[in-house]
Each structure stands twice: as C-alpha cells, then as structure tokens.
C-alpha cells in the first residue's frame, strides 16, 4: 500500500465492536446494510408514531418541515418540489439517513427492521411500490428511484470557467444602468428598533 512517510505509531487498532457501532454507512450498491426487513404497513405504523408529527401522515410534510413524498415532474418548475421520490437518486441514502439521524431530536433510536419498514412506507408514499411490498436486505438494490440518473459531476470547469476566465471590461462596459430589484420592497430582513436592518452600525454621535 502507498506510504507517504514513516508511521508515527500513534493511535491503537479499532476493535470490531467499535467499527460496527460507528460505521453504519450504507452505500448505493447496498454495502453496509444489516440483515432485516420491513413492510409498508409496519412502516406506516412506525411513521405515524415517530415521524408524522413533522412529516405528515402521508410524508407530505407539516408546516415548513421537509416534504418526503410527491413533487415528481416538478424539477423544471419555477418552484420545484424536491423529495425522495422526485429528486433523490439512491434508496441507500434514505435508509442510511433515517437510521443514523432521524427522528430529529432522537436520532439512532430506530432499529434496522424499523428503518426497512419506514423506507418501504416512503417508497409507497411516493407511489413507487404496492401496499403489500416488503423491503429487505436481499431485494434492496432492486429498487431504483426515479431520479437516479438526474445528477452529473461538477462541470463548471467545462461550462463556466472558459467563459469567465477572460480579461474583464474596464470602461464603457454597458449603457444606462437601471435598478431592477430592491430588497427594500420585500421587507423580510430582521430590523433594529428604529427600523434599520438589524446590526446597522450606530451613529456614534447619537449614542452615548
């Protein structure tokens, strides 16, 4: 294996139980999935108990909490709805993120079977499986999300940098300049008591 310098001999070997406890990542090819399974109806029950207070009974989102289902076909709309079904590329991410970081405020409290069940329910909520579907480690990678091919690696080097790496104009660069948008029209910035944007530098001669 590559060696860049002599080892210092710091640290100590990680033991298998430690790695198992912390390395719970699931990759798009299913690596990292534990044994287990869960069906849609079990997922609906777990979701109702642990998730629906924020994400809604049908994963449609409550108030401003994230919407987990719907929005398919909206990615070119003026206001796209980016959900698991409309936007996410991989089911592995759903399983992995729920299992490690949800519910919000009580993360790492869902078991692998519960995570399979919630994931199955979210597939159902997004219209991607039937109501009797059972998700398991074995059939996991057979599931493909609608937007799996919706992403491509950063292409700014080809699409943008040649356009912007040019000597800039210094004089007479354009004609008359008009103001087209004013933040003042929206009035959504927090303000100080005097109505100025919050944090405005005081007039030193008016404060003591």
């Amino acid at each position: 294996s590559p060696v860049w310098a002599d080892k210092l001999g710091l640290g100590r070997p990680a033991v298998p139980e430690e790695i198992e406890a912390w390395d719970v990542v699931v990759l798009p090819d299913g690596r990292g999935l534990p044994e287990g399974s869960g069906d849609v109806s079990t997922g609906e029950e777990v979701f109702a108990e642990k998730c629906a207070m924020c994400h809604g009974d049908f994963a449609e989102g409550i108030d401003n909490w994230p919407v987990l289902a719907g929005g398919q076909g909206t990615l070119t709309d003026r206001r796209p709805v980016k959900t698991i079904g409309s936007y996410w590329p991989y089911l592995s991410t759903v399983w992995d993120y729920i299992h490690r970081s949800m519910p919000f405020g009580a993360a790492q409290t869902v078991t692998p079977d519960e995570t399979y069940a919630i994931t199955a329910f979210l597939l159902y909520s997004n219209g991607l499986v039937d109501e009797d579907f059972v998700l398991s480690k074995e059939n996991f990678t057979e599931i493909h999300l609608p937007n799996e091919n919706g992403f491509y690696p950063d292409d700014r080097a080809e699409v943008e940098y040649p356009k912007f790496r040019v000597e800039p104009c210094m004089t007479d660069c354009k004609g008359e300049v008009k103001i087209t948008k004013r933040a003042a029209d929206l009035k959504v910035t927090p303000t100080d008591p005097d109505g100025r944007p919050a944090g405005t530098i005081p007039d030193w001669f008016e404060v003591a």
């Binding site: 990615l75 936007y87 996410w88 590329p89 991410t93 919706g150 292409d155």
Partner: peptide
C-alpha cells in the same frame, strides 16, 4: 472505493439546473 452519496451530497449540496438535472460534487 466509491462515494457514499450521503444525504448531504444528494438531497442537499446538489445544484438543480434548468433542464431538471442537477450538478453533484460542486465542491470548490
């Protein structure tokens, strides 16, 4: 041997483009 494609590099920190596809791994 490959990217994990975690939530923070799929759902978030990907940049939706006019054709409905999205850039990923826009690191710089």
């Amino acid at each position: 041997d490959r990217a994990v494609e975690s939530r923070e590099e799929t759902s978030k920190y990907t940049d939706l483009m006019p054709d409905g596809r999205a850039r990923k791994w826009t690191w710089v």
